[in-house]
């Protein structure tokens, strides 16, 4: 199959993720959309790796996964503590740094 098709898929996934970030209020959903965007990028990296025949893209994809995993840990923790203090998971409610 033509590898370009995978790129189209990656672009589509990224767009869905971006749209989700912009229009959804729930922090968990926004968070998942960000993950979606990251994975879209990962896909693109792997595709490029394949297209150019070297491993750089795949290595970067691993890096991204590691970073994403760390991010999940921190991000979820923030969301949980936000939810605890405000009793809501809406990102719009958390528009001030202080309570």
């Amino acid at each position: 199959m033509n590898p370009v098709n995978y790129l189209y898929l990656a672009a589509l996934l990224f767009t869905i993720g971006a749209t989700g970030v912009l229009i959804r209020r729930n922090a968990i959903v926004v968070f998942m959309c960000i993950e979606l965007m990251l994975n879209a990028c990962n896909l693109a990296f792997v595709v490029f790796s394949r297209m150019h025949g070297n491993l750089d893209g795949q290595i970067i994809a691993f890096f991204t996964m590691v970073v994403a995993a760390a991010e999940v840990v921190v991000g979820l923790a923030i969301i949980v503590s936000l939810f605890r203090s405000r009793h809501s998971a809406s990102v719009d409610d958390a528009s001030l740094m202080k309570l």
Binding site: L22, V91, D92, A94
Partner: peptide, 8 residues
């Protein structure tokens, strides 16, 4: 303005 989505 503090709204994460507008920053996005």
């Amino acid at each position: 303005n503090g709204f994460a989505r507008s920053y996005a």
